[in-house]
Design a protein around this nucleic acid. Structure first.
Length: 668
DNA sequence: TGGGGTGATATTTTT
DNA sequence: TATCACCCCA
C-alpha cells in the first residue's frame, strides 16, 4: 500500500508522536492519507477500530471514506470504526447521554425549516410583527451556537437593537426547544461540548472510547466543533487533522479557518506536514491557481506542483451578454467533446450563484445534452415529505409542537387554526406541550366539546401509534399509519393533477424505502433513531448515480470534486468577486472560491465572462473580474469580444459602494 | 380554503 | 426581470 504514496504522504500516515496537521493542497491526495492512516492504525499499530473516529463534513465524504477504508482492509477488519459527520458524532453522544443534556428519549431534530418556523412564531409572540427579520435572527442564533456563545453571553454582548432582540429570541428559542424535547443542528455539536465541560467523568469515558481522532476539511470547522475536538483529544496526542486554508469557503456560515493557526497555539508540539504534489491538474492550471492564491495572506506557505506536464493554455472567452455566454459554452463543449471523443460527464460548468444555472440549463436542453444540476430543492423540502416526517416525529416524540401543528389538520380533522390557537393559548398558560394539553380536563373551559373530543381522539391515536412502533416493527407501524390517515387519498384530493399526486406518493414511498434500508442495517434502532438519522442525511445527493451527464453546480458545491474539463463562467466584477463581498471587503474568500474553481480542472479550463448582463431586468455593463489580472498572462489565451478594461470605473464603483455602506453604517 | 393579484426583494449551503 | 410571500376575495 505504501508504495503508492509519496514521502510526505507516507510520513503523514506513520506519524503518531504528537498532534499532526496535514496541509493538503488541492488534488494532493488528502483522502488517501486519512484512509491509509486508519488502515495503518488498525493493521500496524493494533488500534481497535472502535477506538478510531474519523470526522468529515458531509455524508457523502463520510460514505466515500468508509468505502475506501473497506477496500483497504476488508469489511470485517473495520467493524466498529466510526466514520461520520460532526453532526452524527454529536448525535451519538447526545443519544448516549440523554439525561445529562436534558432530553428525553425520542427527541426530535429540527432542521433549518423547522427552526425557522419556531423562531418566526416566537418573534410574533414577542414583538408582534416579525417583519422580514426572521432569517436574520435565525442566522444570528446559529452564529452564536457555532461560536459557542450561550444565550446569557449573547445578551450581555448585544450592542444594537437587532442583536439585543436576537439574543432575547435565542434564549426563548432554546427554552422552547427544550419543552418540545427537540434540538437543532447546531445543538448536536453545542450540547456535547456543554456536557463535557460540566461532567469531566463523562468526558473521560468518551476519551476512553475515542482514542484516535482524524478530522477532514479541518479549515471548515467552527469554534464549537474545534472545542469538541480539543475536549476529546485532551492531553493525549492522538489527533490528525487534514485541511487547506486556501479552500476555506464557508466562513460566512461560521467556519473559522483561524482554527488552523490556533492548532499551533493549542498544541505547541504540533507537527505540520505539507502535501504539495498535485496529482490532478496540468502545470498551467496549477500555475494559474498558485498565482491567484498568492495574492492572499498565508500563515502556512505552500506551493503546488505537478508532474503531469504543462498542458494547454487556459482559455478566456469574452461574450456579448449572458445569453451568448451560455451559447458559447455549450457550443464549445459540444465541439470539444466531439473532437476528443469524450463523455459528457468529463465536463463541468461552475458558477458563483445558483441563478446563473438557468441559461445554461436552457441551452443544454435545447441541444439535447444530458446534465446534472447539483443543489436545488432538498428532498426534505417537499411538503409531502415534511408532512410524513412530522407524523413520524410526532409518534416518536409527541411533545414536538412543530410537528403537531403541521399535521393536526392534514388530512382534515376539522381542527382548524381557530381551535389550534385556543389550544396553544391554554398549553402556553400551563407550560405544557400541545399534545399533553389535549388530555387535560381544563381544556373544556376553553374549547367546545366537539373540538375537545376530536383533539382527544387524535392524541389517543398518536399514543396507539407510538405503542405500535415500539412493540411491533417500526416500519410496519409507519406503513399502517399512512394507511390509517389515508394519505394517498388526501394527496389525490388536494392535487388538481393526478400525475403530481402520484409523484408525491412516489416520494413518500421512497422515504419509506429509505427507512426500511436503514432499519435493515440497524435492526435495533427505534423509530426515533431512524427519523433522527434521516434528518441528518441529504437524500438528493445520495442516489444520484451520475450517468453520462454534464455537471452544473456552484463553486461551493464543487469543492472536493474534479473534472477533466471545466468551464468557469461569469468571471466578472460583482459576480466573482460577488458584489456583497466587495462591499464587505471579504475579497479573500472570493479569491479562494475562484481558486477552488480553477483547481477542479484536470486537463482544460475555460473561463468566460459577459460584457453586459441583465440584472434585475436592467442591462448593465460588466467589468472583467480582478482575478483575471492575477493570473499569469503567458498561460492565458483570449478569445471573443474586445473589451476595454475601465480601471478607473472599476475602482470608482468599488469606492462609491464602500462610501455608501459607510454612510449607512454611521447613520444607523 | 385555495387561487389569483400585488408588492417587496434579490449570494454562497451543509448538517 | 423573476420569484415568493402575503392578502383578499369568491
Amino acid at each position: 500500500m505504501s508504495d503508492q504514496m509519496n514521502p510526505a504522504q507516507r510520513a503523514a500516515v506513520r506519524y503518531l508522536d504528537t498532534p499532526l496537521l496535514v496541509l493538503a493542497g488541492a488534488g494532493s491526495g488528502k483522502t488517501r492519507v486519512i484512509t491509509q492512516k486508519i488502515a495503518y492504525l488498525i493493521e500496524q499499530c493494533s488500534v481497535e477500530p472502535q477506538h478510531i473516529a474519523a470526522v468529515t463534513f458531509t455524508n457523502k465524504a463520510a460514505r466515500e471514506m468508509k468505502a475506501r477504508v473497506g477496500k483497504l482492509l476488508g469489511k470485517d477488519k473495520m467493524k466498529g470504526l466510526r466514520v461520520s459527520t460532526f453532526h452524527t458524532m454529536g448525535l451519538n453522544i447526545v443519544r448516549k447521554e440523554l439525561k445529562c443534556v436534558g432530553l428525553k428519549s425520542g427527541f426530535s431534530i429540527y432542521d433549518s425549516a423547522d427552526s425557522l418556523a419556531l423562531i418566526k412564531e416566537l418573534m410574533k409572540k414577542t414583538f408582534g410583527d416579525p417583519g422580514n427579520q426572521v432569517e436574520q435572527v435565525q442566522y444570528s442564533i446559529s452564529r452564536w451556537k457555532n461560536a459557542f456563545v450561550l444565550p446569557e453571553q449573547a445578551a450581555q454582548e448585544a450592542h444594537d437593537a437587532h442583536s439585543t432582540a436576537a439574543a432575547q429570541i435565542y434564549a426563548t428559542y432554546n427554552h422552547h426547544l427544550k419543552t418540545y424535547n427537540a434540538v437543532d443542528f447546531d445543538d448536536l455539536i453545542m450540547l456535547p461540548v456543554i456536557l463535557f465541560r460540566e461532567n469531566p467523568d463523562k468526558l473521560a469515558a468518551w476519551r476512553e472510547r475515542i482514542r484516535y481522532l482524524l478530522v477532514d476539511e479541518y479549515q471548515d470547522t467552527n469554534t464549537t466543533q474545534y472545542e469538541l475536538v480539543k475536549q476529546l483529544v485532551g492531553v493525549r496526542n492522538c489527533l490528525t487533522v487534514v485541511g487547506d486554508d486556501d479552500q476555506s469557503i464557508y466562513s460566512w456560515r461560521g467556519a473559522n479557518p483561524e482554527n488552523l493557526a490556533l492548532l499551533k497555539q493549542d498544541f505547541p508540539n504540533l507537527r505540520v506536514i505539507k502535501l504539495e504534489q498535485n496529482y490532478r491538474s496540468t502545470g498551467r492550471i496549477l500555475r494559474a491557481a498558485n498565482a491567484l492564491i498568492s495574492n492572499n495572506p498565508h500563515v502556512f506557505e505552500k506551493r503546488l506542483w505537478s508532474e503531469l506536464g504543462n498542458g494547454d493554455p487556459l482559455r478566456v472567452i469574452r461574450c456579448k451578454d449572458e445569453e451568448q455566454e451560455a451559447e458559447q459554452v455549450v457550443h464549445e463543449l459540444m465541439h470539444h467533446r466531439f473532437r476528443h471523443g469524450n463523455k459528457f460527464k468529463d465536463y463541468a460548468i461552475l458558477y458563483r450563484g445558483n441563478h446563473q444555472s438557468r441559461l445554461f440549463e436552457r441551452m443544454l436542453r435545447q441541444n439535447n445534452i444530458p446534465y446534472y444540476l447539483s443543489g436545488g430543492t432538498s428532498f426534505f423540502a417537499y411538503t409531502e415529505i415534511k408532512d410524513v416526517m412530522a407524523y413520524l416525529r410526532m409518534v416518536a416524540n409527541p411533545d414536538d409542537d412543530n410537528a403537531f401543528v403541521r399535521i393536526i389538520n392534514t388530512p382534515r380533522r376539522e381542527l382548524g387554526p381557530g381551535t389550534v390557537e385556543k389550544l396553544a393559548g391554554y398549553a402556553h398558560m400551563r407550560g405544557n406541550s400541545l399534545f399533553t394539553s389535549c388530555f387535560e380536563i381544563g381544556l373544556q373551559q376553553h374549547l367546545n366539546q366537539r373540538a375537545c373530543e376530536k383533539l382527544n381522539e387524535f392524541a389517543n391515536w398518536i399514543v396507539s401509534m407510538a405503542h405500535k412502533a415500539e412493540e411491533e416493527h417500526p416500519i410496519e407501524a409507519v406503513k399502517s399509519l399512512l394507511l390509517n390517515i389515508d394519505y394517498e387519498r388526501w394527496l389525490l384530493d388536494t392535487c388538481k393533477d393526478e400525475v403530481i399526486a402520484n409523484r408525491k406518493m412516489d416520494n413518500v414511498k421512497e422515504l419509506i424505502t429509505w427507512l426500511e434500508r436503514m432499519h435493515k442495517n440497524d435492526p435495533s434502532a427505534s423509530l426515533s433513531d431512524l427519523v433522527n438519522k434521516l434528518t441528518l442525511i441529504d437524500m438528493l445527493k445520495d442516489d444520484d448515480e451520475v450517468g453520462d451527464q454534464v455537471s452544473l453546480m456552484t463553486l461551493h458545491a464543487a469543492k472536493g470534486l474534479e473534472f477533466p474539463h471545466v468551464f468557469l463562467v461569469g468571471m466578472e466584477e460583482e459576480l466573482l468577486p460577488h458584489r456583497s463581498s466587495i462591499e464587505e471587503e471579504t475579497i479573500e474568500e472570493e479569491r479562494r472560491l475562484a481558486y477552488v474553481g480553477i483547481t477542479r480542472a484536470q486537463r482544460s479550463l475555460t473561463i468566460t465572462m459577459a460584457v453586459t448582463r441583465k440584472r434585475y431586468g436592467e442591462k448593465i455593463d460588466c467589468q472583467p473580474s480582478r482575478f483575471l489580472d492575477e493570473l499569469p498572462k503567458d498561460d492565458l489565451e483570449w478569445a471573443g469580444q474586445n473589451v476595454v478594461v475601465d480601471e478607473a470605473k472599476r475602482q470608482e464603483n468599488g469606492r462609491s459602494q464602500l462610501a455608501m455602506l459607510r454612510g449607512l453604517l454611521s447613520e444607523g
